[in-house]
Structures are given as structure tokens and as C-alpha cells.
Amino acid sequence: MSADVAADVARGREALAPAATRQLRFTLTLRNPTGLALTDQTVWLYLPMKDTTTQHLANVRVSMPHELSQDSLGHSVLRLSLPTVGPFTSKVVTVQAELALRQEAMRVTLIDPSPWLKAERWIECDDAEVRALAATLQRSTQSETLDAIYDWVSSQLVYAGYVADPLGARLALQKRWGDCTEYAYLCCALARARGIAARPVGGYVVNGSAAPRAEDYHDWTEVYLDGAWRVMDAQKRCWRQPAEDYIAFRVHQPVATNALGLAARFKVDGSLDLRM
């Protein structure tokens, strides 16, 4: 997140009262599956993003020593270092995040929209079929075009449940099915094909405080409209309505911006087995 955008977010957080507060609790089990002691093990984990147009991470509590940092996109990156883990032993770590959430998306300055307009892996906005469909969904305003994109994707794709490997926008369009990731990628590709900044986001959708399971992880789209990033979730049918239940952990990006690389939720440097 640039300094200008961070300042806009901070000012908006002061100006707009939060619509809700949430506490998210996670339990991590770190296990040594070997008969040998492991040394110098490091676990990297995404936590809720520090500041977005709809959320503010107010506090984090972890049951062991840790480091928490932010990268250039505003991701919250948790680092756990374990000097020694004995043979066949486990360590349970609890993480609690407290957030303030808003119903209305806060306006932020998008200084450089180019990263969210270009074609990339899985978001093939330059594909001929994607561009042809996007052209049929063009309306007189960006707002109306986004309505048309949302209506088409939410009505024409069939939800396939969890799909292990990403298909991407092009294959999702051809097959007309996929999981939440394909809905997000296709919405992004169609928006970008019409010159509207869009990006896929991963996290959790929770109504109240919760202890989300790993299988609850969800992907959706954010589109930049009228000066703010706004949630468009064609799979769960959320558009043009309050989105304070959406808690962003990671913006999908084609290049690494932190130590997790391109990992979606966590990464282990070493031989530990991690369960959430």
C-alpha cells in the first residue's frame, strides 16, 4: 500500500465509525512428523490485512513469540520461529485477530491502476473469448457495466464445489463452471477487459466473531468504482450491498511481495507439518 493510499485509509478510518467488530480465532498445530529433532523452523502466515476500504486490523494476539509485518500491498504477515522441535512432537499455537469493519466502502486514491488492468496468469483479460463476452456486457457507464458482468457470471457459471487446481478465467468461461476462485477470476478478467480496475481477494466471510476452518477460505473480486474498492462476489451473490462480513487476508498477485511467495495462506520453511 502506498503512503498516499495508507494516509487516505487512516483518515477514512477516523471519519467513518465502524459498522461492526469481529474477533477471529485460529488454532495452528505444528507437528514434527520425523523421528529426528528439527531445528530453525519458520512458519509464515497471512492474517487479516491491516487496512482496506472496509476493515482495520486493531489487534493481534499470538500464544508464542512472533513477528508481524506489512508488505507493499498491505498484507499482514505473521512469522513464527521455532529453534527446536523434538521428534514426533506437536506445538499448538492460538492466534486471535480483532477487527473493526465498515458497511460502506471508504474512498481511496488509486494512484497507479495499471497492475489491476493487465492480463496475467488466470486473469486472461486479453483472451479473444473473454474480450468478446466483455464487449457484449459493455454499458453506458462503468457502474452499469459491472452490473452486467455480475449478472452474467452469477447466472451463467455453475458452482462446482472446491476445485483443487485453479482453472482461470478463460477455462471458467469455456466450461461454465468452477469454484469461488473461478468466479473471482472471471469477474476480474471481464472488468479489466472493459478498462475497470479489478483484483481477486482471498479471506473469510463471517457473520459475527468466529473460528474459521481452513475449508471456509473463500475468494471474491474487488472492483474499483466511484473511488473505492468494492466487493463483487458472484458466487455468494454479494454486490451492491453491505460487505462487512468480508474479511480480506490476501490480494492475489502474480509476483511475490513478501516471504510467503505465491502461497495462498501459509508457508513453512522447514519440515514441520502445519494444520489449521
Rank of each mutant, 00 (worst) to 15 (best):
A148I: 10
R79N: 06
V223P: 01
Q235C: 14
D216I: 05
A172Q: 03
K267Q: 14
R213P: 04
M106N: 02
A6T: 11
A128R: 12
T221Q: 02
L262C: 07
A134M: 08
A198F: 00
S63M: 06
A134N: 01
P33Q: 11
E14N: 13
Q23S: 13
R176S: 13
G86K: 07
R240P: 00
A97H: 03
Y46T: 09
V85P: 01
L30C: 05
A211R: 08
W177D: 05
G202Y: 10
L260M: 15
S114H: 13
L173R: 11
Q241G: 04
P113I: 02
C187L: 10
V231P: 09
D8E: 15
A198R: 01
P115Q: 07
E104G: 00
H56D: 11
W116C: 05
G270H: 00
P83K: 03
V268P: 15
E182W: 00
W44L: 13
S63Q: 02
P65R: 12
R194L: 15
D216N: 14
W152V: 05
L146G: 08
E120L: 04
D126K: 06
Y185V: 04
R61A: 04
L171V: 14
L167A: 06
R230W: 03
F266E: 13
T181K: 13
Y150H: 14
Q41W: 09
N32I: 12
C180Q: 00
C180M: 02
R213G: 15
G35F: 12
C125R: 01
V130T: 12
T136E: 09
T21G: 06
G195Y: 14
V163A: 05
E67M: 05
S271I: 08
A135Q: 08
E98H: 14
R265M: 08
Y246G: 04
Q55T: 15
W122Q: 01
N207M: 11
P166N: 08
L262D: 02
L225Q: 10
E104Q: 07
T52W: 02
V62Y: 04
V9F: 09
D127N: 14
L73V: 05
